[in-house]
Design a protein around this nucleic acid. Structure first.
Lengths: 336, 336
DNA sequence: GGTCTCCTTGCACGTTTGTGCACGCGAGTT
DNA sequence: AACTCGCGTGCACAAACGTGCAAGGAGACC
């Protein structure tokens, strides 16, 4: 050991410089020189298990990045088809058809989290919706250090019983930590009871500041809600909407929502009363973001996905293989 | 399985499309979704061992790329020091000091081969020297598909006993294969016996064409020779030079060579008679390449390396830790 | 100074992965 | 048709790896 154990002013406190140095060195030896962990342990004067942990750390903290390049002549047929048909850059996550919905979501979220680093960079304003898909993604993010980026919450998270702020802040915090970004919370319920309250709130200066941020996002990240699918999105599970609301949605021909804003199969969202009480950004606002990434898992969400595409909300899609296949399959109905 | 097992017009014959598709899928599942090989075997309806081999193939053929990012605030002190002192971008390969020279070369070559993909791209003219270092590198290249690139041999390879063409072509072929590039051989001995022969040869149209290519390289790749070090470079081992030649080099104060062209500690190469018979490009020509990558392993080559730096031949250096450390150490003498 | 807590380390074990070998299939040859 | 050669496959074993656990060490707080 020749280096001194000096501390470093790392962005995330906790991690001493020595550890990062060792992890880096271990990663070089392991991934660039194909040494075994045993050999590396000898070089670093530590135990093999520590090297194993060091390498885990190196992967989890983004020191090591593993990327997969398709040969240009062999891009996934599905991705190509989606690109051609919908003008959307798709990332299809291979998942066997018989996988459970939970598995599927997990696997898509894991892949999504790892792909995300490519989209998010310094000096960017990143909008993140609140929902079960985003929550799953947030648990697997690979850190990437950026400067001067901000994470902006797109829609409220409270429901009738809890303020939801804890969950939402946890989710947002994970994004903020992963990218070294400042976090802008939006402490409102998912839906207001009374449109008037929303309007009042929207006149508050703190709210205006946030809405202004939402209006100039560089990247928006969201899932889609699927009100009538077997596996309901979080928005439809616990106390966010009442029986009457559902009836109204049904009557309006709603097929899904993005960040609490509902839309029909043709992508239209005008004249849906519930949207007067929603807290997410109007689609016109959302569409100002040059890059709009949607993560979708499960064929049950296909109608919602089709609607979101029709609404022109999506520029980049991350989804599982089954859903992707169904999306390009003409025979699959686009309405439920 | 829904896709058909159709063949593909791959650039390298041999590899069927199905294999690449499977490898790609396996890589996704393994590296993006953290499945075990067992689980992947089940999804691909094959055995675990095949998956292991599939993944090896995916790594070796560049489908999977593993890169290591230092946090910007923690670049290797050595790399930083070299950058500041010599205006060279350095890649330091960690190798323990007690490693043997053979180990050292192997490990540097392995790392170098894996870094190389970052430098070589489509539509480039890449010059490659012939020597033991380049030979070691060539054995570990990771393929990367490029279009319209060419590999150009920088110096001849024959000696008194063999034409060396076989070895040289093998080395060049590996580079060509790895990058899908055309290969321009240079079928001459390393040194001519008589300067007049060289001059005559240099007037040949086929030679002129090659020299013209050498004059507009995008990337040059070479090691350094070290005539008086304990472990002599290939150029000094078998039958390339005679006793008188060595004496002459010594008298001229030569400290090393790049692609058969000799230089002194101060980087000068004029007035060295042997260079009249050398087949490598004049340094003035070599320096026209915007990127000049030098791979050096072993402190014995330090004086040669210093000379090459003094001659301004190097823009990017790949070397082992010990050599890098010695390079920035003021106390290490720069002449042998 | 004590002690409490949290973090790190190495060990031991079970799991996961790499690889030599033998088998089997298909193409090309005689 | 028989043969051979090359290649891909799975098996079985050995090597390499991940992780729960208990012990040790460094603060932090009393």
């Amino acid at each position: 050991m020749t280096w001194t154990p000096q501390d470093d002013p790392d962005r995330s406190p906790e991690v001493p410089a020595g550890k990062t140095r060792d992890a880096l060195r271990a990663a070089h030896l392991y991934y660039m020189q194909d040494l075994t962990m045993d050999a590396i342990a000898a070089e670093l004067h530590t135990s093999r298990s520590s090297v194993s942990r060091l390498l885990s750390h190196a992967r989890a903290s983004g020191l090591v990045e593993i990327s997969i390049h398709s040969p240009l002549d062999l891009p996934s047929r599905l991705e190509q088809a989606i690109r051609e048909r919908h003008e959307i850059a798709a990332h299809v996550v291979p998942v066997p058809d018989q996988a459970s919905d939970v598995d599927r979501l997990d696997r898509v979220a894991l892949s999504a989290a790892r792909i995300l680093g490519r989209f998010i960079d310094s000096n960017q304003l990143v909008g993140v919706a609140w929902g079960s898909t985003m929550s799953a993604v947030s648990r697997h993010l690979v850190p990437k250090s950026t400067h001067n980026s901000e994470i902006v919450q797109l829609n409220g998270a409270g429901n009738l019983r809890t303020t939801g702020i804890l969950y939402a802040s946890e989710l947002l915090r994970r994004f903020g930590d992963a990218f070294g970004a400042k976090v802008q919370q939006f402490p409102v319920p998912a839906f207001f009871d009374d449109p008037a309250t929303k309007e009042a709130f929207w006149r508050e200066r703190s709210t205006k500041r946030l809405l202004e941020l939402q209006g100039r996002l560089d990247v928006a990240l969201f899932g889609v809600g699927s009100p009538f699918a077997e596996v309901a999105s979080r928005v439809y599970q616990g106390g966010y909407l009442e029986r009457d609301d559902y009836a109204a949605l049904s009557a309006d021909g709603v097929v899904g929502d993005v960040a609490t804003v509902f839309y029909r199969a043709d992508g239209s969202s005008d004249g849906i009363p519930l949207n007067e009480r929603a807290t997410g950004p109007d689609f016109g606002v959302l569409r100002r973001a040059p890059r709009r990434i949607c993560v979708v898992s499960g064929r049950a969400k296909l109608p919602s996905l089709r609607g979101a595409i029709a609404a022109g909300l999506i520029t980049d899609l991350i989804t599982d293989e089954g859903t992707a296949r169904a999306l390009v399959d003409e025979r699959t109905p686009s309405a439920p």
